[in-house]
Amino acid sequence: MVSSATAAVFRTAGSERDFLDISRLDAGAVAAHRRPFAIGALLERVCKDYAGDALAKGVSLSYVRCRAIVDSDPALIERIARNLVANALRYTDSGRIVVACRPKGSSIAMQVWDTGRGIPRDKQDSVFREYYQLGNPERDREKGLGLGLAIVRRLTDLLECKLILRS
């Protein structure tokens, strides 16, 4: 089964930073600082940062080069990309993860594709709620806190980007 999380046009492992980020987002204390930047360099850096984790897990992590210049907040986009890649790594036991950009009309879609476990259709909205995790009923903190995708949802809302999940 292949699952994909797509954000039109951001390493978390359940940390104090996640709590702080979600609190700041909920309080409206995060502002977007838009500027043109090369999204490809950002995505390549994120993939390089996670390459060792992927290798240790036996999962292929690849990046498809992109030369697009986007007008958004590079720090927030990087956080989105890091959370999506970290999530893909967490739930992909074998196979591969591919990070790419694809033109969508006058926009760019940043995409993270993986051969992970997949998400049942009736749970797809729930995975973007804070503290919600599939396959962690015992709330084992080693499996994360369930904040990564909630942060992604709030950041894409802040940036007025579409967030699409296909599984």
Rank of each mutant, 00 (worst) to 15 (best):
residue 87 N to H: 14
residue 32 A to Y: 07
residue 54 A to M: 13
residue 11 R to Y: 11
residue 42 L to Y: 01
residue 6 T to C: 05
residue 50 Y to K: 12
residue 74 P to D: 04
residue 90 R to I: 00
residue 141 R to A: 15
residue 144 G to D: 10
residue 59 V to H: 07
residue 46 V to I: 14
residue 102 R to A: 11
residue 25 L to A: 04
residue 39 I to E: 00
residue 71 D to T: 11
residue 5 A to W: 05
residue 145 L to R: 04
residue 158 L to N: 00
residue 117 R to E: 14
residue 155 L to T: 12
residue 47 C to I: 13
residue 105 G to R: 06
residue 18 D to K: 03
residue 45 R to H: 10
residue 58 G to C: 08
residue 108 I to W: 14
residue 135 G to D: 15
residue 22 I to E: 01
residue 21 D to I: 08
residue 27 A to P: 05
residue 22 I to M: 09
residue 147 L to Y: 14
residue 13 A to R: 04
residue 120 P to Q: 14
residue 130 E to G: 08
residue 145 L to V: 07
residue 64 V to H: 04
residue 45 R to P: 01
residue 51 A to V: 01
residue 3 S to C: 09
residue 6 T to L: 06
residue 100 A to F: 08
residue 121 R to F: 01
residue 110 M to T: 00
residue 145 L to H: 02
residue 2 V to E: 03
residue 138 E to H: 02
residue 159 L to V: 12
residue 114 D to P: 02
residue 104 K to F: 05
residue 45 R to C: 10
residue 38 A to C: 08
residue 22 I to D: 01
residue 154 R to P: 04
residue 163 L to Y: 08
residue 90 R to D: 05
residue 11 R to D: 11
residue 132 Y to L: 08
residue 35 R to P: 00
residue 20 L to V: 08
residue 118 G to T: 12
residue 160 E to R: 00
residue 135 G to V: 02
residue 75 A to F: 01
residue 159 L to K: 10
residue 147 L to T: 14
residue 33 H to R: 13
residue 155 L to H: 02
residue 157 D to Y: 01
residue 27 A to M: 10
residue 115 T to Q: 14
residue 36 P to S: 09
residue 54 A to Q: 10
residue 104 K to I: 02
residue 144 G to V: 13
residue 166 R to M: 03
residue 123 K to P: 00
residue 48 K to L: 15
residue 42 L to V: 11
residue 103 P to R: 15
residue 34 R to Y: 06
residue 10 F to K: 01
residue 143 K to S: 04
residue 129 R to C: 09
residue 156 T to S: 15
residue 23 S to A: 07
residue 149 L to F: 10
residue 118 G to W: 05
residue 100 A to D: 13
residue 50 Y to R: 13
residue 116 G to N: 04
residue 154 R to D: 06
residue 161 C to W: 11
residue 101 C to N: 10
residue 43 L to H: 05
residue 94 S to Q: 10
residue 143 K to V: 05
residue 15 S to H: 02
residue 100 A to T: 11
residue 7 A to D: 03
residue 17 R to P: 00
residue 40 G to N: 08
residue 50 Y to I: 00
residue 65 R to P: 12
residue 152 V to P: 09
residue 147 L to P: 06
residue 54 A to G: 15
residue 104 K to L: 11
residue 24 R to Q: 15
residue 90 R to N: 08
residue 143 K to G: 05
residue 27 A to V: 04
residue 97 I to R: 07
residue 164 I to W: 07
residue 69 I to E: 08
residue 51 A to G: 10
residue 64 V to D: 03
residue 41 A to G: 07
residue 118 G to N: 05
residue 127 V to N: 08
residue 71 D to A: 09
residue 53 D to Q: 15
residue 129 R to D: 09
residue 30 V to I: 15
residue 45 R to Q: 15
residue 86 A to N: 02
residue 143 K to M: 12
residue 121 R to M: 03
residue 165 L to S: 06
residue 90 R to V: 01
residue 130 E to Y: 02
residue 115 T to S: 15
residue 124 Q to H: 01
residue 16 E to M: 11
residue 112 V to C: 14
residue 13 A to D: 10
residue 147 L to N: 12
residue 17 R to M: 07
residue 96 R to W: 11
residue 7 A to K: 00
residue 15 S to Y: 01
residue 89 L to Q: 03
residue 23 S to T: 04
residue 96 R to K: 09
residue 8 A to Y: 02
residue 6 T to H: 02
residue 150 A to C: 04
residue 152 V to Y: 05
residue 61 L to M: 06
residue 5 A to S: 03
residue 97 I to M: 15
residue 98 V to P: 00
residue 1 M to T: 12
residue 71 D to L: 11
residue 100 A to N: 10
residue 67 R to G: 12
residue 125 D to R: 08
